[in-house]
């Protein structure tokens, strides 16, 4: 399973390195989203500072949609999904590989967005350990849930519009948990940040388990 996961993740990341869609299109898109948030809040430093964690994760969600669409768009083109099915790769390995590749891209985008909110909104990054744990768990959860719903929508002609409809409501706990944990990390929330990590960890665990167990069936039915 892990050999197959590494093989699939390596293939997806090599495709991204060759096409540079993440660096040349999605990352600039993420920064434009932040700029638009800045215009919407009229450069009010107080609002922007307090809203920065939430805006960061909304931007991450929007970028995650693009990364997941792209991940399954690759397989939809020129019968590549049939090639993947014919290879006999372990379905759990395919799931983990695709989720790993999406997570790696999200990690890069989060680094770009974190720089963006510091420069554009004057946000603080606060407690590094709590912030790092939040990013890791939220990224794993988003990548796992995105890969599960991505393959569900993959075989449909309306996948581009259906995926956001399926995924965004489902990942609301990630938005809530990650935003609250970040607010706690920078001292803008009275609650303890670590308890929000429990929510993020539970979400990630559920979707990783769902993907490992159910991806094969979803891939066959898509």
């Amino acid at each position: 399973m892990w050999r197959d996961a590494v093989l699939v993740a390596g293939k997806d990341l090599r495709v991204e390195l060759r096409s540079r869609v993440t660096t040349n299109q999605v990352a600039p898109y993420a920064l434009i989203v932040l700029l638009l948030f800045g215009f919407a809040f009229d450069q009010d430093p107080y609002i922007l500072t307090h809203a920065a964690p939430g805006l960061f994760w909304v931007a991450v969600l929007l970028c995650a949609l693009l990364a997941i669409q792209r991940s399954f768009g690759l397989e939809a083109a020129d019968g590549a999904r049939d090639g993947l099915r014919m290879s006999g790769l372990d379905a759990a390995g395919i799931f983990l590989g695709k989720a790993l590749a999406v997570a790696a891209q999200l990690a890069v985008l989060e680094a770009v967005l974190a720089g963006g909110i510091v420069v554009l909104f004057g946000a603080r990054l606060g407690h590094p350990l709590l912030l790092g744990a939040t990013c890791v768990l939220a990224t794993v959860g988003l990548a796992a849930a995105g890969t599960v719903y991505g393959v569900m929508a993959a075989g449909l002609r309306v996948r581009e519009t259906l995926l956001p409809l399926l995924l965004l409501p489902v990942v609301a706990p990630v938005l809530l948990g990650a935003t609250q944990a970040w607010l706690a990390a920078v001292g803008l929330s009275s609650g303890g940040g670590w308890r929000w990590l429990t929510l993020l960890a539970a979400f990630a665990a559920i979707y990783v388990a769902l993907g490992v167990l159910g991806f094969g069936t979803l891939l066959e039915e898509a």
């Binding site: 293939k11 019968g79 090639g83 014919m86």
Partner: peptide
């Protein structure tokens, strides 16, 4: 599937890879 090879209408390959 691993024991069978299908040369179909589509190439089942990735455009961005060499």
């Amino acid at each position: 599937r691993r024991r069978v090879g299908l040369l179909g209408h589509a190439s089942a390959l990735y455009d961005d890879l060499s």
